[in-house]
Design a protein around this nucleic acid. Structure first.
Length: 894
RNA sequence: AGGGGAUUAGCUCAGUUGGUAGAGCGCCACCCUUACAAGGUGGAUGUCGUCGGUUCGAGCCCGGCAUCCCCUACCA
């Protein structure tokens, strides 16, 4: 009944086939109504313009592990997929496409352009969703959402109108980050600060009615055209006397006031600052404080406007050059010096961001922020790692109103209609046909669209059908956990919390798991320009999705950044191969195994290894459960790696080979059952981490079900009957056996005795119990240690022998020991053996010294808990007997 | 400037109520033993960044210092 497997794991034959299998059987579907407890995750929607990168790979693997684990654990598990329309990014991509055909966006009407974007979206927008299938993402595809879908757009409309009615959305004139290429406001998120080498120019402003000058330092001399004051520190003795007087603005000749404000740093530059309220964020604040005039000198496209006088029409950089020339001609430049400054750059277009005064839509955030703070303070939402809650709260304390309008075409158009007659604004759920104030028919819709994050903020409930009271919403909201990066805690996480609380009346998720950033092997940020990116699709092609997933999970350590290395990947690729081959071996030895159900074998049919392995299985099941519950993914992968490789492959399989190769005995039947059940358990335990290989193997096992994907996750709790096979005694005995075998191998290895040379070993048991264990497993010892002969009896004569001491404490705190004695005459050079033993003595002596020292310390004896002291005393005895045995041995060899 | 994090084996990192330092990879040696050379067996390697404090006892708790990273805000 077993099938044959190729001798090397080939992920290509396995992965796409099984994904199709899962889809065909609808295993990822979550039910709107179910008796099972709900578990839900909404995906952080990737941009439609995007392709899957390594960061997604990490983020998705975590979500998939959680979803698959909970699905197997009896939950109605939903992982909801979708994409974000990504206003700026998408508009730019399409604009670039059009430019290839020599078409500019403004050559088209808004409708024509949007048609092009939708065409592009239909063609390429689901690329990233397709790529998620290569990762094995178990999302419920039928629920795929897009932020510009009809339903989600309805939610956006509903939210906008309600917030507007509640007075929480307003229009205002403020300074915003302005992208002169895209000609729109952009969010802080899209602004990157780049350090550049610039110049600090010291300009001379003449004080009115005198021949004196004030020297003013600036990095942006062109902004002087918009200056409406110069400012000094009120306590600055150099300048106190000028406060209230005027200076003459160079080039333009305007008179502007000299004011004072604490903001000025007396030590920097000349201690005098020019104030340009319409083009600098700090100056803007000062301008408001001092009621200054706001002079805007820029057009939306970054050219200077009529306020710039002779410089009108020039681009900023050109205007700067010209202005410096003109200032120099008038000898108004006192000096210039090199200066490092940080320049705000738009991450999308790459142009320098200009602070720009414009009319925008804002959300008054304070009222929304208050409850959003409270849910984190109260623990209704927790962060993992916990420290991120501090970051979240800190930001919430200092939150400012949210500019939600963008001067783009791609996005949710703002549902506000301006009246041409009375100038008032109508905001309704249904498109109005007349002004709701003066009833004029001459109304037009606002041309702006909403910030992409506005619709993302609604994602946890808009995707579930809100504003309709759907069954989905009732079942899956609040979602269980949000998995995302720390870079969007403010832009996304915080806003989801505010919107969720305000509109649904409950938190959008109970837990926020913050995953780290994947960096290259040297810890550098991956970037296309540096060329150190790792493409997950390449890795999947080469090594398979399972290897990639296991690697990422193993590298996670509590939200810290991850250094991704090819070497680690190969290690886990090898692990996949190990799993594959262990199965191959097992199946070839289960061909005559008839059972298709798990039956707990008779005790008499079970050997020591069976009981030991099952005990370890129980331990591992508990460890994995605990790790997953605490989001400690690498703990889970480590525990499973060690169990499968070290315990199952290295010891159990090796131990049981003769049994499996032998006749159809009771023992063989028992071992086959343990083998079959353990394989079944291993595949189920591993499945959330490595779904493809486990499904492939699971289908070929003698004990299986329709699919591991929907089978039960093994835990100590639901696996009790089977796990009762294992017990502590068996564990102790087998571990002792392992130590004896390892001790023999060690002597062989250290003495360079070739495997072909058979050895005779004498095992000298310290007590009857040990003697029994050794006798019962004599043949295993002979085989696994590569012996010719093995005598079990108390040894008195150690002449010309190598000796090792194996000591173990059993559950009853009884000390058991075995002396491993190997006659070495004719096998080795004794000097080597002496030095091996002396090394052991040295190690034990060192430990003995420190332990004895501790016990000599009265304070230790007085204060330490009794069990610690007992342990130390026992250890001393152990060490002493070890040292004396070994020292005696050295003498015999000399 | 403020906030956060890091410093443990050559590399990447575990080390969860303080009680004898761990893993993977790499390295060295020996092995093609009928599941796997993407393998097996054995081995070496650490004054746990530094100085001090608390304690019988500190990788772990407290404080100073050094180095590095990230975030936020930036000096015009």
């Amino acid at each position: 009944m077993s099938e044959t497997l190729s001798d090397r794991y080939n992920h290509k034959e396995v992965e796409s086939k099984n994904y199709e299998f899962w889809l065909k059987n609808n295993y990822f579907k979550a039910a709107d109504v179910s008796t099972k407890p709900p578990y839900s995750i909404v995906i952080p929607p990737p941009n439609v313009t995007g392709t899957l990168h390594i960061g997604h790979a990490l983020n998705h693997t975590i979500q998939d592990v959680l979803t698959r684990w909970k699905r197997m654990s009896g939950f109605n598990a939903l992982w909801l997929p979708g994409t974000d329309h990504a206003g700026i990014a998408t508009q730019m991509v399409v604009e670039k496409e059009l430019l290839k055909q020599d078409v500019k966006r403004k050559d088209l009407t808004r409708e024509q352009f949007l048609e092009k974007v939708w065409d592009w979206k239909d063609k390429y927008g689901s690329r990233i969703l397709g790529q998620m299938k290569y990762m094995g993402d178990s999302v419920d595809w039928d629920r795929t959402r897009f932020t510009l879908d009809e339903g989600l757009s309805q939610a956006v409309r509903e939210v906008f109108v309600k917030l507007h009615k509640d007075g929480l959305i307003y229009r205002g004139q403020r300074l915003v980050n302005w992208d002169t290429h895209l000609e729109t406001a952009v969010s802080d998120l899209e602004v990157e600060n780049e350090e550049r080498n610039g110049t600090l120019w010291h300009l001379k402003y003449q004080i009115e009615g005198t021949s004196e000058f004030l020297t003013i330092a600036t990095t942006r001399p062109e902004t002087l055209l918009g200056d409406t004051a110069v400012c000094v520190h009120p306590e600055d003795d150099r300048y106190k006397k000028y406060i209230g007087k005027n200076v003459i603005l160079p080039l333009l000749g305007r008179k502007i006031k000299i004011i004072s404000d604490d903001y000025v740093d007396q030590a920097f530059g000349s201690g005098v600052v020019k104030i340009t309220p319409a083009h600098d964020f700090n100056d803007y604040e000062i301008g408001k404080r001092h009621n200054l005039q706001f002079i805007n000198i820029l057009n939306p496209d970054g050219t200077l406007n009529e306020n710039a006088g002779a410089y009108k029409g020039l681009k900023v950089q050109n205007a700067r050059k010209k202005i410096l020339e003109d200032l120099a001609a008038q000898e108004l430049i006192a000096k210039e010096q090199p200066h490092k400054l940080t320049v705000p750059i738009c991450s999308r277009s790459g142009v320098i961001i200009e602070p720009y005064l414009s009319n925008q839509w804002y959300v008054a955030i304070k009222k929304l922020a208050e409850p959003a703070k409270n849910v984190v303070k109260s623990g209704a939402i927790t962060f993992e790692p916990e420290s991120w809650s501090k970051t979240y709260l800190h930001w919430m304390e200092n939150i400012e109103d949210w500019c939600i309008s963008r001067q783009l075409w791609w996005g949710h158009r703002i549902p506000a209609w301006h009246c041409d007659d009375c100038q008032k604004i109508t905001v309704e759920l249904k498109d109005p046909t007349e002004c709701s104030y003066c009833k004029s028919k001459k109304i037009h819709q606002d041309t702006d669209v909403l910030d992409t994050w506005f619709s993302s903020a609604l994602w946890p409930f808009s995707t579930l059908g809100w504003p309709k009271e759907t069954e989905s919403l009732k079942t899956f909201y609040p979602t269980t956990v949000l998995v995302t990066g720390h870079d969007i805690i403010f832009f996304w996480v915080a806003r989801m919390v505010m919107m969720g609380l305000y509109f649904v009346g409950d938190v959008p998720f109970r837990k926020v798991y913050i995953n780290g950033i994947v960096r290259d092997a040297n810890g550098k940020k991956m970037s296309k320009s540096v060329g150190n990116t790792v493409d997950p699709l390449d890795i999947i092609e080469k090594h398979g999705a399972d290897s990639l997933r296991y690697t990422l999970l193993s590298l996670i350590s509590s939200g810290k950044d991850i250094k991704f290395s090819e070497q680690r990947l190969e290690g886990y690729r090898n692990f996949m191969n190990k799993i594959w081959n262990a199965t191959r071996f097992s199946l070839s030895n289960l061909s005559d195994f008839k059972e298709t159900k798990q039956i707990v074998p008779e005790k008499s049919a079970l050997n020591l290894a069976d009981k030991w392995l099952t005990f370890r299985l129980g331990e591992v099941e508990a460890e994995v459960q605990d790790a997953l519950e605490n989001y400690r993914f690498s703990d889970a992968t480590t525990a499973l790696y060690q169990f499968v490789w070290n315990d199952f492959c290295d010891w159990y399989v090796e131990y049981t080979k003769p049994i499996l190769y032998g006749n159809d005995s009771q023992d063989k039947k028992g071992t086959q059952m343990v083998l079959a059940v353990t394989l079944n358990r291993i595949m189920r335990l591993l499945h959330p981490f490595v779904p493809f290989i486990t499904e492939e193997i699971f289908q070929k096992l003698p004990i299986k079900s329709a699919s591991v994907t929907v089978d039960a996750y093994p835990t100590r709790h639901n696996d009790e009957e089977w796990l009762s096979i294992g017990n502590k005694d068996a564990h102790f005995e087998f571990e002792l056996l392992k130590d004896v075998i390892t001790a023999i191998r060690n002597i062989r290895g250290e003495n360079l005795i070739k495997p072909g040379v058979k050895m005779n070993v004498k095992l000298s048991p310290g007590d009857a119990k040990v003697q029994k264990i050794l006798e019962e497993n004599k043949s295993a010892i002979i085989r696994l240690a590569g012996l010719d002969q093995c005598d079990i009896a108390v040894v008195k004569d150690f002449t010309k022998c190598a000796v090792s001491l194996v000591q173990k404490t059993s559950g009853q705190k009884q000390d058991h020991k075995v002396e491993v004695v190997i006659p070495l005459e004719g096998l080795i050079d004794f000097a080597a053996e002496i030095s091996r033993i002396e090394k052991l003595i040295e190690k034990s002596s060192k430990e003995l010294g420190s332990t004895e020292g501790r016990l000599r310390n009265d304070n230790f004896v007085k204060n330490a808990p009794p069990e610690v002291i007992e342990k130390d005393k026992a250890r001393i005895e152990e060490l002493k007997s070890q040292i004396s045995t070994l020292s005696a041995q050295v003498k015999r060899l000399q």
